[in-house]
């Protein structure tokens, strides 16, 4: 199994963190993984994306040309990446910020009101965790508990309150697709 994933949204939504968490959790589960961010001059509110590959075997190229899965957090990212998804692949998108339908009919679509659900746990900043929870539960790529463990590593030093909000956002994201 090889899954090519692209996370995309605007700067400040924690897009890179989403990718790092997937890659870290994949490593913990003894899978092969690569993470590659769009890099360079970036600003809060601008666009951000990263590619992650999770595989049972060695990964040759870290580049993702035709993702199996896209996790889309804002409208411009859906416009940009909807056409790139592999036929039969998955589009998870944030309906809190995107009010259009996916146009393609050869892909699976999962609608997640990520910001709304995150606000229920206390902060819309955890919208990325809602999306991650939904993704991992729906596709089973990674165990939710592993992702939460990776959260402890990647957000090391944050307060208990912040950590618990993020974990709860992940749980609620998972619950949306159960």
């Amino acid at each position: 199994m090889t899954q090519r994933i692209r996370c995309a949204g605007f700067g400040g939504q924690g897009i890179v963190l989403m990718g790092r968490l997937i890659a870290h959790a994949a490593m913990v589960e003894d899978k092969h993984t690569t993470f590659f961010p769009q890099y360079g001059a970036a600003m809060r509110g601008g666009t951000a994306n990263c590619s992650v590959i999770v595989s049972d075997g060695a990964i040759a190229s870290p580049m993702v040309e035709e993702p199996d899965v896209v996790l889309i957090m804002n409208g411009p990212s859906l416009d940009k990446f909807e056409p790139t998804v592999k036929p039969g692949g998955w589009i998870f998108y944030n309906t809190s910020l995107i009010d259009r339908e996916v146009e393609r009919n050869d892909v699976n679509v999962v609608k997640i009101a990520a910001n709304d659900v995150a606000e229920e746990v206390g902060t819309s900043r955890a919208a990325n965790m809602v999306m991650l929870g939904a993704f991992s539960k729906k596709l089973g790529t990674l165990d939710l508990d592993t992702l939460m463990g990776s959260l402890d590593v990647q957000l090391y030093g944050k307060g208990d309150n912040v950590m618990e909000m993020n974990r709860e956002a992940m749980r609620r994201g998972a619950a949306l697709v159960e």
Partner: peptide, 10 residues
Amino acid sequence: DGILGQMMEP
């Protein structure tokens, strides 16, 4: 190159 510098892997 920029890819090797920026990418993460185990």
